[in-house]
Design a protein around this nucleic acid. Structure first.
Lengths: 246, 246
DNA sequence: CGATAATACTGGTAACAACCACATGATGTC
DNA sequence: GACATCATGTGGTTGTTACCAGTATTATCG
Protein backbone atom coordinates (compact mmCIF):
# COMPACT_ATOMS: atom_id res chain seq x y z
CA UNK A 1 0.00 0.00 0.00
CA UNK A 2 2.79 2.43 0.71
CA UNK A 3 3.65 1.93 -2.94
CA UNK A 4 3.65 5.56 -3.91
CA UNK A 5 6.31 5.17 -6.53
CA UNK A 6 4.93 5.05 -10.00
CA UNK A 7 8.05 3.77 -11.81
CA UNK A 8 7.48 5.52 -15.08
CA UNK A 9 5.96 8.35 -13.10
CA UNK A 10 4.63 10.93 -15.41
CA UNK A 11 3.00 12.77 -12.55
CA UNK A 12 5.02 14.29 -9.71
CA UNK A 13 5.28 12.46 -6.42
CA UNK A 14 3.51 15.11 -4.37
CA UNK A 15 0.56 14.86 -6.71
CA UNK A 16 0.45 11.07 -6.45
CA UNK A 17 0.60 11.36 -2.68
CA UNK A 18 -2.19 13.93 -2.62
CA UNK A 19 -4.35 11.59 -4.67
CA UNK A 20 -3.70 8.72 -2.27
CA UNK A 21 -4.57 10.84 0.76
CA UNK A 22 -7.65 12.26 -0.92
CA UNK A 23 -8.88 8.76 -1.56
CA UNK A 24 -8.23 7.70 2.03
CA UNK A 25 -10.42 10.61 3.04
CA UNK A 26 -13.31 10.14 0.66
CA UNK A 27 -13.30 6.40 1.28
CA UNK A 28 -14.08 7.19 4.90
CA UNK A 29 -10.87 5.68 6.24
CA UNK A 30 -9.85 9.08 7.60
CA UNK A 31 -12.73 10.71 9.43
CA UNK A 32 -13.66 14.40 9.80
CA UNK A 33 -11.82 16.23 12.59
CA UNK A 34 -9.52 13.24 13.00
CA UNK A 35 -5.79 13.83 12.64
CA UNK A 36 -3.92 12.30 9.72
CA UNK A 37 -0.45 10.88 10.45
CA UNK A 38 2.11 13.56 11.27
CA UNK A 39 4.43 14.79 8.55
CA UNK A 40 7.34 12.88 10.05
CA UNK A 41 5.29 9.69 10.15
CA UNK A 42 4.19 10.14 6.55
CA UNK A 43 7.86 10.41 5.59
CA UNK A 44 8.39 6.84 6.79
CA UNK A 45 5.08 5.49 5.56
CA UNK A 46 5.48 6.62 1.97
CA UNK A 47 9.27 6.95 1.81
CA UNK A 48 9.28 10.50 0.52
CA UNK A 49 10.82 13.63 1.96
CA UNK A 50 8.99 16.05 4.19
CA UNK A 51 9.23 18.59 1.37
CA UNK A 52 7.05 16.37 -0.79
CA UNK A 53 4.69 15.57 2.07
CA UNK A 54 4.12 19.24 2.77
CA UNK A 55 3.59 19.98 -0.90
CA UNK A 56 0.88 17.32 -1.06
CA UNK A 57 -0.78 18.53 2.13
CA UNK A 58 -0.65 22.14 0.91
CA UNK A 59 -2.58 21.09 -2.14
CA UNK A 60 -5.24 19.26 -0.13
CA UNK A 61 -5.58 22.18 2.27
CA UNK A 62 -6.17 24.54 -0.66
CA UNK A 63 -8.70 22.10 -2.06
CA UNK A 64 -10.48 22.06 1.30
CA UNK A 65 -9.88 18.43 2.27
CA UNK A 66 -7.55 19.09 5.21
CA UNK A 67 -6.82 21.82 7.70
CA UNK A 68 -3.74 22.36 9.83
CA UNK A 69 -3.34 23.40 13.44
CA UNK A 70 0.08 24.59 14.43
CA UNK A 71 1.45 22.46 17.23
CA UNK A 72 -1.45 19.99 17.12
CA UNK A 73 -1.56 18.29 13.76
CA UNK A 74 -3.29 18.12 10.41
CA UNK A 75 -6.96 17.18 10.37
CA UNK A 76 -9.63 16.03 7.94
CA UNK A 77 -12.16 18.71 6.99
CA UNK A 78 -15.81 17.74 7.32
CA UNK A 79 -17.11 16.68 3.93
CA UNK A 80 -19.32 19.23 2.30
CA UNK A 81 -22.18 18.26 0.08
CA UNK A 82 -20.84 20.46 -2.66
CA UNK A 83 -17.17 21.09 -2.53
CA UNK A 84 -14.44 22.88 -4.37
CA UNK A 85 -16.58 25.57 -5.86
CA UNK A 86 -15.49 29.06 -6.86
CA UNK A 87 -13.81 27.13 -9.61
CA UNK A 88 -13.92 28.15 -13.20
CA UNK A 89 -16.39 25.89 -14.95
CA UNK A 90 -18.41 25.95 -18.13
CA UNK A 91 -22.18 25.84 -18.04
CA UNK A 92 -22.07 22.17 -19.03
CA UNK A 93 -19.61 21.22 -16.30
CA UNK A 94 -21.64 23.21 -13.80
CA UNK A 95 -24.83 21.39 -14.71
CA UNK A 96 -23.24 17.94 -14.69
CA UNK A 97 -21.77 18.65 -11.24
CA UNK A 98 -25.31 19.27 -10.07
CA UNK A 99 -26.48 16.01 -11.58
CA UNK A 100 -28.38 17.70 -14.37
CA UNK A 101 -27.97 16.94 -18.06
CA UNK A 102 -26.96 20.11 -19.90
CA UNK A 103 -28.38 21.13 -23.23
CA UNK A 104 -28.65 24.20 -25.43
CA UNK A 105 -30.55 25.80 -28.25
CA UNK A 106 -28.58 28.27 -30.34
CA UNK A 107 -30.68 31.32 -31.10
CA UNK A 108 -28.10 33.33 -32.97
CA UNK A 109 -24.47 33.01 -34.03
CA UNK A 110 -22.59 35.62 -36.02
CA UNK A 111 -19.49 37.79 -36.28
CA UNK A 112 -20.20 41.28 -35.07
CA UNK A 113 -18.65 44.44 -33.66
CA UNK A 114 -19.25 44.37 -29.88
CA UNK A 115 -20.95 47.10 -27.87
CA UNK A 116 -18.58 49.63 -26.33
CA UNK A 117 -18.96 48.25 -22.80
CA UNK A 118 -18.06 44.73 -23.90
CA UNK A 119 -15.04 45.97 -25.86
CA UNK A 120 -13.73 47.79 -22.82
CA UNK A 121 -14.25 44.87 -20.45
CA UNK A 122 -12.30 42.72 -22.92
CA UNK A 123 -9.50 45.31 -22.92
CA UNK A 124 -9.52 45.55 -26.71
CA UNK A 125 -8.32 48.60 -28.70
CA UNK A 126 -10.99 50.98 -29.98
CA UNK A 127 -10.41 49.91 -33.58
CA UNK A 128 -10.77 46.20 -32.89
CA UNK A 129 -12.88 44.37 -35.43
CA UNK A 130 -15.60 41.80 -35.13
CA UNK A 131 -16.06 39.22 -32.40
CA UNK A 132 -17.92 35.95 -32.41
CA UNK A 133 -21.36 36.56 -30.92
CA UNK A 134 -23.56 33.75 -29.68
CA UNK A 135 -26.96 33.82 -28.05
CA UNK A 136 -28.32 30.58 -26.74
CA UNK A 137 -30.92 29.15 -24.45
CA UNK A 138 -29.32 26.92 -21.86
CA UNK A 139 -31.21 23.82 -20.76
CA UNK A 140 -30.98 21.55 -17.76
CA UNK A 141 -32.67 18.18 -18.19
CA UNK A 142 -34.47 19.70 -21.14
CA UNK A 143 -36.01 22.69 -19.34
CA UNK A 144 -34.80 26.27 -19.80
CA UNK A 145 -32.34 27.27 -17.07
CA UNK A 146 -30.98 30.49 -18.46
CA UNK A 147 -30.32 32.73 -21.42
CA UNK A 148 -26.69 33.16 -22.37
CA UNK A 149 -25.13 35.89 -24.47
CA UNK A 150 -21.44 35.72 -25.24
CA UNK A 151 -18.71 37.50 -27.17
CA UNK A 152 -15.54 35.57 -27.98
CA UNK A 153 -12.15 36.98 -28.94
CA UNK A 154 -10.81 34.87 -31.80
CA UNK A 155 -7.16 34.75 -32.92
CA UNK A 156 -6.15 37.00 -35.81
CA UNK A 157 -8.01 36.25 -38.99
CA UNK A 158 -10.12 33.39 -37.64
CA UNK A 159 -13.86 33.51 -38.02
CA UNK A 160 -16.44 30.91 -37.18
CA UNK A 161 -19.90 30.01 -38.38
CA UNK A 162 -22.34 27.51 -36.94
CA UNK A 163 -21.00 24.67 -39.08
CA UNK A 164 -17.39 25.39 -38.10
CA UNK A 165 -18.31 25.45 -34.46
CA UNK A 166 -20.25 22.23 -34.61
CA UNK A 167 -17.38 20.56 -36.42
CA UNK A 168 -14.98 21.64 -33.68
CA UNK A 169 -17.27 20.54 -30.86
CA UNK A 170 -16.79 23.53 -28.61
CA UNK A 171 -15.06 26.87 -28.89
CA UNK A 172 -12.83 25.99 -25.97
CA UNK A 173 -11.63 22.77 -27.56
CA UNK A 174 -10.92 24.60 -30.79
CA UNK A 175 -9.00 27.43 -29.13
CA UNK A 176 -7.07 25.02 -26.98
CA UNK A 177 -6.09 22.54 -29.68
CA UNK A 178 -5.32 25.03 -32.44
CA UNK A 179 -4.00 28.01 -30.51
CA UNK A 180 -3.09 26.64 -27.06
CA UNK A 181 -5.39 29.15 -25.40
CA UNK A 182 -6.65 27.86 -22.06
CA UNK A 183 -9.20 29.62 -19.87
CA UNK A 184 -7.57 29.89 -16.46
CA UNK A 185 -9.22 32.71 -14.60
CA UNK A 186 -12.39 34.75 -14.65
CA UNK A 187 -14.01 37.71 -12.98
CA UNK A 188 -17.69 37.33 -12.34
CA UNK A 189 -20.33 39.68 -10.99
CA UNK A 190 -23.76 38.62 -9.86
CA UNK A 191 -26.89 40.65 -9.33
CA UNK A 192 -30.63 40.29 -9.23
CA UNK A 193 -32.82 41.59 -12.05
CA UNK A 194 -36.38 41.24 -13.32
CA UNK A 195 -37.18 39.32 -16.47
CA UNK A 196 -37.92 41.39 -19.56
CA UNK A 197 -40.89 40.20 -21.65
CA UNK A 198 -38.55 38.58 -24.18
CA UNK A 199 -36.51 36.82 -21.51
CA UNK A 200 -39.68 35.70 -19.78
CA UNK A 201 -41.04 34.21 -22.98
CA UNK A 202 -37.83 32.36 -23.82
CA UNK A 203 -37.42 31.07 -20.27
CA UNK A 204 -41.11 30.20 -19.98
CA UNK A 205 -41.76 32.25 -16.89
CA UNK A 206 -43.87 35.29 -16.06
CA UNK A 207 -42.54 38.71 -17.00
CA UNK A 208 -41.23 40.43 -13.88
CA UNK A 209 -39.99 37.18 -12.34
CA UNK A 210 -36.63 37.45 -10.58
CA UNK A 211 -33.50 36.40 -12.48
CA UNK A 212 -29.93 35.95 -11.34
CA UNK A 213 -27.70 37.91 -13.70
CA UNK A 214 -24.11 36.76 -14.09
CA UNK A 215 -21.54 38.67 -16.12
CA UNK A 216 -18.20 37.00 -16.59
CA UNK A 217 -14.95 37.93 -18.30
CA UNK A 218 -12.67 34.96 -18.84
CA UNK A 219 -8.89 35.23 -19.13
CA UNK A 220 -6.37 32.93 -20.80
CA UNK A 221 -3.21 31.59 -19.18
CA UNK A 222 -1.50 34.75 -20.47
CA UNK A 223 -4.02 36.87 -18.62
CA UNK A 224 -5.56 38.16 -21.82
CA UNK A 225 -9.33 38.52 -21.87
CA UNK A 226 -10.82 35.90 -24.18
CA UNK A 227 -14.58 36.13 -23.72
CA UNK A 228 -17.44 38.09 -22.23
CA UNK A 229 -20.37 36.02 -21.08
CA UNK A 230 -23.69 37.25 -19.76
CA UNK A 231 -26.22 34.79 -18.41
CA UNK A 232 -29.60 35.32 -16.80
CA UNK A 233 -30.69 32.33 -14.75
CA UNK A 234 -34.20 31.43 -13.68
CA UNK A 235 -34.15 32.18 -9.96
CA UNK A 236 -36.44 29.25 -9.19
CA UNK A 237 -34.08 26.77 -10.83
CA UNK A 238 -30.61 28.12 -10.21
CA UNK A 239 -28.55 28.99 -7.16
CA UNK A 240 -24.97 30.17 -7.10
CA UNK A 241 -22.55 28.64 -4.64
CA UNK A 242 -19.23 29.97 -3.39
CA UNK A 243 -16.66 28.95 -0.85
CA UNK A 244 -14.98 31.89 0.84
CA UNK A 245 -11.68 31.89 2.69
CA UNK A 246 -9.58 34.31 4.68
CA UNK B 1 16.70 48.71 -0.69
CA UNK B 2 17.47 45.00 -0.72
CA UNK B 3 17.18 45.31 3.03
CA UNK B 4 14.71 42.54 3.51
CA UNK B 5 16.04 41.62 6.91
CA UNK B 6 13.88 42.92 9.67
CA UNK B 7 16.25 42.38 12.60
CA UNK B 8 13.65 41.68 15.23
CA UNK B 9 11.57 40.03 12.53
CA UNK B 10 8.26 39.04 13.88
CA UNK B 11 6.96 38.15 10.44
CA UNK B 12 8.54 35.42 8.33
CA UNK B 13 10.94 36.39 5.56
CA UNK B 14 8.81 35.05 2.74
CA UNK B 15 5.99 37.25 3.94
CA UNK B 16 8.23 40.32 4.11
CA UNK B 17 9.48 39.58 0.62
CA UNK B 18 5.94 39.17 -0.69
CA UNK B 19 5.04 42.55 0.78
CA UNK B 20 8.03 44.18 -0.89
CA UNK B 21 7.20 42.67 -4.27
CA UNK B 22 3.52 43.54 -3.91
CA UNK B 23 4.47 47.14 -3.32
CA UNK B 24 6.81 47.18 -6.30
CA UNK B 25 3.85 46.05 -8.36
CA UNK B 26 1.19 48.40 -7.06
CA UNK B 27 3.62 51.31 -7.19
CA UNK B 28 3.86 50.74 -10.92
CA UNK B 29 7.54 49.89 -10.89
CA UNK B 30 6.75 46.42 -12.22
CA UNK B 31 4.31 46.61 -15.11
CA UNK B 32 1.58 44.18 -16.22
CA UNK B 33 2.79 41.30 -18.41
CA UNK B 34 6.39 42.30 -17.63
CA UNK B 35 8.63 39.64 -16.09
CA UNK B 36 9.89 40.11 -12.56
CA UNK B 37 13.52 39.10 -11.89
CA UNK B 38 14.09 35.35 -12.10
CA UNK B 39 14.12 33.30 -8.91
CA UNK B 40 17.91 32.95 -9.10
CA UNK B 41 18.32 36.69 -9.50
CA UNK B 42 16.00 37.39 -6.58
CA UNK B 43 18.19 35.12 -4.46
CA UNK B 44 21.11 37.52 -4.97
CA UNK B 45 19.06 40.70 -4.79
CA UNK B 46 17.44 39.97 -1.45
CA UNK B 47 19.96 37.50 -0.04
CA UNK B 48 17.43 34.81 0.77
CA UNK B 49 17.20 31.22 -0.41
CA UNK B 50 15.20 30.11 -3.39
CA UNK B 51 12.90 28.25 -1.00
CA UNK B 52 11.88 31.58 0.51
CA UNK B 53 11.63 33.27 -2.88
CA UNK B 54 9.29 30.58 -4.16
CA UNK B 55 7.17 30.73 -1.05
CA UNK B 56 6.73 34.49 -1.49
CA UNK B 57 5.90 34.13 -5.18
CA UNK B 58 3.47 31.30 -4.43
CA UNK B 59 1.61 33.64 -2.13
CA UNK B 60 1.44 36.43 -4.68
CA UNK B 61 0.28 34.02 -7.38
CA UNK B 62 -2.54 32.82 -5.15
CA UNK B 63 -3.44 36.42 -4.42
CA UNK B 64 -3.54 37.14 -8.14
CA UNK B 65 -0.63 39.57 -8.40
CA UNK B 66 1.69 37.34 -10.42
CA UNK B 67 1.48 34.44 -12.83
CA UNK B 68 4.14 31.94 -13.83
CA UNK B 69 5.05 30.45 -17.16
CA UNK B 70 7.24 27.38 -17.03
CA UNK B 71 10.44 27.99 -18.94
CA UNK B 72 9.70 31.67 -19.55
CA UNK B 73 9.46 33.47 -16.25
CA UNK B 74 7.15 35.02 -13.69
CA UNK B 75 5.01 37.94 -14.80
CA UNK B 76 2.91 40.69 -13.31
CA UNK B 77 -0.85 40.18 -13.61
CA UNK B 78 -2.80 43.09 -15.04
CA UNK B 79 -4.26 45.13 -12.19
CA UNK B 80 -7.95 44.63 -11.73
CA UNK B 81 -10.15 47.38 -10.46
CA UNK B 82 -11.44 45.14 -7.74
CA UNK B 83 -9.14 42.34 -6.78
CA UNK B 84 -8.77 39.55 -4.33
CA UNK B 85 -12.43 38.88 -3.82
CA UNK B 86 -14.01 35.57 -2.95
CA UNK B 87 -12.43 36.40 0.36
CA UNK B 88 -14.28 36.10 3.59
CA UNK B 89 -15.24 39.59 4.68
CA UNK B 90 -17.76 41.12 7.01
CA UNK B 91 -20.40 43.47 5.73
CA UNK B 92 -18.42 46.41 7.10
CA UNK B 93 -15.18 45.37 5.43
CA UNK B 94 -17.06 44.74 2.21
CA UNK B 95 -18.57 48.21 2.24
CA UNK B 96 -15.31 49.97 3.10
CA UNK B 97 -13.56 48.12 0.27
CA UNK B 98 -16.14 49.64 -2.05
CA UNK B 99 -15.51 53.08 -0.65
CA UNK B 100 -18.80 53.23 1.18
CA UNK B 101 -19.22 54.01 4.86
CA UNK B 102 -21.01 51.10 6.57
CA UNK B 103 -23.74 51.55 9.14
CA UNK B 104 -26.48 49.55 10.77
CA UNK B 105 -29.73 49.79 12.63
CA UNK B 106 -30.48 46.89 14.96
CA UNK B 107 -34.12 45.88 14.66
CA UNK B 108 -34.05 42.94 17.03
CA UNK B 109 -31.56 41.11 19.24
CA UNK B 110 -32.44 38.15 21.42
CA UNK B 111 -31.59 34.61 22.43
CA UNK B 112 -33.84 32.13 20.67
CA UNK B 113 -34.17 28.54 19.50
CA UNK B 114 -33.34 28.50 15.76
CA UNK B 115 -35.59 27.14 13.02
CA UNK B 116 -34.89 23.55 12.06
CA UNK B 117 -33.20 24.47 8.79
CA UNK B 118 -30.77 26.80 10.49
CA UNK B 119 -29.96 24.23 13.17
CA UNK B 120 -29.14 21.65 10.52
CA UNK B 121 -26.98 23.99 8.48
CA UNK B 122 -25.06 24.79 11.65
CA UNK B 123 -24.59 21.05 12.29
CA UNK B 124 -25.98 21.33 15.80
CA UNK B 125 -27.61 18.44 17.74
CA UNK B 126 -31.40 18.34 17.82
CA UNK B 127 -31.47 19.25 21.50
CA UNK B 128 -29.26 22.28 21.14
CA UNK B 129 -30.50 25.31 23.06
CA UNK B 130 -30.82 28.95 22.16
CA UNK B 131 -28.70 30.94 19.75
CA UNK B 132 -28.09 34.65 19.51
CA UNK B 133 -30.45 36.08 16.93
CA UNK B 134 -29.96 39.49 15.36
CA UNK B 135 -31.96 41.28 12.72
CA UNK B 136 -30.54 44.51 11.40
CA UNK B 137 -30.83 46.93 8.59
CA UNK B 138 -27.48 47.42 6.89
CA UNK B 139 -26.62 50.85 5.60
CA UNK B 140 -24.12 52.17 3.09
CA UNK B 141 -23.43 55.89 3.34
CA UNK B 142 -26.62 56.13 5.35
CA UNK B 143 -28.97 54.50 2.83
CA UNK B 144 -30.42 51.00 3.26
CA UNK B 145 -28.34 48.42 1.38
CA UNK B 146 -29.76 45.22 2.76
CA UNK B 147 -31.59 43.41 5.51
CA UNK B 148 -29.52 40.97 7.54
CA UNK B 149 -30.72 38.12 9.72
CA UNK B 150 -28.18 36.11 11.65
CA UNK B 151 -27.91 33.28 14.15
CA UNK B 152 -24.69 32.98 16.15
CA UNK B 153 -23.41 29.93 18.00
CA UNK B 154 -22.07 31.12 21.34
CA UNK B 155 -19.71 29.14 23.58
CA UNK B 156 -21.28 27.11 26.38
CA UNK B 157 -23.16 29.21 28.89
CA UNK B 158 -22.53 32.57 27.23
CA UNK B 159 -25.46 34.79 26.37
CA UNK B 160 -25.46 38.31 25.01
CA UNK B 161 -27.81 41.25 25.13
CA UNK B 162 -27.62 44.51 23.25
CA UNK B 163 -25.59 46.18 26.00
CA UNK B 164 -23.07 43.33 26.16
CA UNK B 165 -22.64 43.42 22.42
CA UNK B 166 -22.16 47.15 22.29
CA UNK B 167 -19.61 46.93 25.09
CA UNK B 168 -17.64 44.31 23.17
CA UNK B 169 -17.77 46.24 19.91
CA UNK B 170 -18.52 43.32 17.62
CA UNK B 171 -19.37 39.67 18.08
CA UNK B 172 -16.27 38.67 16.17
CA UNK B 173 -13.96 40.68 18.40
CA UNK B 174 -15.60 39.20 21.46
CA UNK B 175 -15.40 35.60 20.23
CA UNK B 176 -11.83 36.07 19.09
CA UNK B 177 -10.49 37.74 22.23
CA UNK B 178 -12.33 35.65 24.79
CA UNK B 179 -12.53 32.27 23.07
CA UNK B 180 -9.95 32.39 20.27
CA UNK B 181 -12.62 31.62 17.70
CA UNK B 182 -11.67 32.99 14.31
CA UNK B 183 -13.89 32.88 11.22
CA UNK B 184 -11.77 31.27 8.53
CA UNK B 185 -14.07 29.81 5.93
CA UNK B 186 -17.63 30.15 4.73
CA UNK B 187 -20.07 28.60 2.31
CA UNK B 188 -22.31 31.06 0.55
CA UNK B 189 -25.22 30.67 -1.82
CA UNK B 190 -26.70 33.44 -3.89
CA UNK B 191 -30.03 33.68 -5.61
CA UNK B 192 -32.49 36.23 -6.88
CA UNK B 193 -35.78 36.85 -5.08
CA UNK B 194 -38.56 39.43 -5.00
CA UNK B 195 -38.99 41.80 -2.08
CA UNK B 196 -41.78 40.98 0.36
CA UNK B 197 -43.89 43.95 1.48
CA UNK B 198 -42.02 44.10 4.81
CA UNK B 199 -38.61 43.94 3.15
CA UNK B 200 -39.67 46.56 0.63
CA UNK B 201 -40.78 48.92 3.37
CA UNK B 202 -37.59 48.53 5.38
CA UNK B 203 -35.36 48.88 2.33
CA UNK B 204 -37.44 51.78 0.97
CA UNK B 205 -38.14 50.19 -2.39
CA UNK B 206 -41.28 49.01 -4.17
CA UNK B 207 -42.69 45.60 -3.23
CA UNK B 208 -41.78 43.11 -5.95
CA UNK B 209 -38.39 44.71 -6.61
CA UNK B 210 -35.57 42.25 -7.22
CA UNK B 211 -33.26 41.40 -4.32
CA UNK B 212 -30.03 39.45 -4.17
CA UNK B 213 -30.36 36.83 -1.45
CA UNK B 214 -27.18 35.61 0.20
CA UNK B 215 -27.12 32.78 2.72
CA UNK B 216 -23.83 32.13 4.42
CA UNK B 217 -22.59 29.63 6.97
CA UNK B 218 -19.30 30.66 8.55
CA UNK B 219 -16.82 28.19 10.02
CA UNK B 220 -14.14 28.67 12.65
CA UNK B 221 -10.51 27.63 12.31
CA UNK B 222 -11.59 24.27 13.75
CA UNK B 223 -14.11 23.91 10.96
CA UNK B 224 -17.06 24.18 13.30
CA UNK B 225 -20.01 26.19 12.08
CA UNK B 226 -20.26 29.41 14.08
CA UNK B 227 -22.97 31.47 12.40
CA UNK B 228 -25.76 31.47 9.86
CA UNK B 229 -26.27 34.74 8.05
CA UNK B 230 -28.99 35.63 5.60
CA UNK B 231 -28.90 38.94 3.79
CA UNK B 232 -31.16 40.39 1.13
CA UNK B 233 -29.48 43.16 -0.82
CA UNK B 234 -31.12 45.88 -2.85
CA UNK B 235 -30.36 44.84 -6.43
CA UNK B 236 -29.98 48.43 -7.57
CA UNK B 237 -27.29 49.13 -5.01
CA UNK B 238 -25.41 45.90 -4.61
CA UNK B 239 -23.46 43.63 -6.91
CA UNK B 240 -21.55 40.52 -5.94
CA UNK B 241 -18.07 39.98 -7.27
CA UNK B 242 -16.08 36.75 -7.52
CA UNK B 243 -12.76 35.71 -8.95
CA UNK B 244 -12.79 32.20 -10.35
CA UNK B 245 -9.80 29.99 -11.02
CA UNK B 246 -9.08 26.58 -12.49
C1' DC C 1 19.36 29.91 -46.68
C1' DG C 2 16.60 26.85 -43.85
C1' DA C 3 16.21 23.26 -40.74
C1' DT C 4 18.32 21.19 -36.85
C1' DA C 5 21.06 20.76 -32.76
C1' DA C 6 23.32 22.64 -28.86
C1' DT C 7 23.05 25.75 -25.09
C1' DA C 8 21.64 28.73 -21.67
C1' DC C 9 18.18 30.53 -19.56
C1' DT C 10 13.36 29.94 -17.04
C1' DG C 11 10.31 27.67 -13.41
C1' DG C 12 9.14 22.70 -11.19
C1' DT C 13 10.24 18.80 -8.23
C1' DA C 14 12.71 16.59 -4.66
C1' DA C 15 15.81 15.37 -0.82
C1' DC C 16 18.15 16.55 3.43
C1' DA C 17 19.16 19.33 7.38
C1' DA C 18 18.35 22.54 10.95
C1' DC C 19 15.94 25.33 13.76
C1' DC C 20 11.60 28.03 15.38
C1' DA C 21 6.81 28.40 17.36
C1' DC C 22 2.98 26.37 19.35
C1' DA C 23 0.29 22.69 22.06
C1' DT C 24 0.06 19.24 25.40
C1' DG C 25 0.86 16.26 29.00
C1' DA C 26 4.13 14.82 32.49
C1' DT C 27 6.91 16.40 36.19
C1' DG C 28 8.35 18.92 39.81
C1' DT C 29 7.89 22.58 43.22
C1' DC C 30 5.66 25.41 46.46
C1' DG D 1 -3.93 20.84 45.30
C1' DA D 2 -2.36 24.78 42.37
C1' DC D 3 0.98 26.30 39.66
C1' DA D 4 5.28 26.71 37.05
C1' DT D 5 8.59 24.06 34.34
C1' DC D 6 10.17 20.93 31.12
C1' DA D 7 10.13 17.35 27.54
C1' DT D 8 8.24 15.97 23.48
C1' DG D 9 5.48 16.00 19.61
C1' DT D 10 3.26 18.89 16.08
C1' DG D 11 3.38 22.10 12.08
C1' DG D 12 6.18 26.51 10.20
C1' DT D 13 10.31 28.62 8.22
C1' DT D 14 14.71 28.67 5.92
C1' DG D 15 18.89 27.22 3.62
C1' DT D 16 21.50 24.20 0.37
C1' DT D 17 21.89 21.14 -3.30
C1' DA D 18 20.63 18.66 -7.36
C1' DC D 19 18.28 17.56 -11.16
C1' DC D 20 14.04 17.73 -14.35
C1' DA D 21 11.15 20.14 -17.83
C1' DG D 22 9.80 23.63 -20.60
C1' DT D 23 11.36 28.00 -23.72
C1' DA D 24 14.18 30.86 -26.48
C1' DT D 25 18.30 31.98 -28.52
C1' DT D 26 22.44 30.77 -30.81
C1' DA D 27 25.43 27.96 -33.36
C1' DT D 28 25.85 24.46 -36.63
C1' DC D 29 25.06 21.49 -40.36
C1' DG D 30 23.19 20.16 -44.81
Amino acid sequence: MPAIVDPNDYTPKYYQLATILRERISSGELLPHQPIPSERQLEDIYSVSRTTIRQAIDLLVRQGFLYREHGRGTFVSPQKLQKGISELTSFSEDMRARGVEPGQKILELKMTVPPEEVRQRLELPADHGELLYIERLRLGDGVPMGLMTSYHVLPEGLTLDREGLEAAGSIYTLLQEKFHLIPTEADETLEAVLATPREAALLQIAAGSPLLLSVRVTYSQYRRAMEYVKIVYRADRYQYFAKLTR
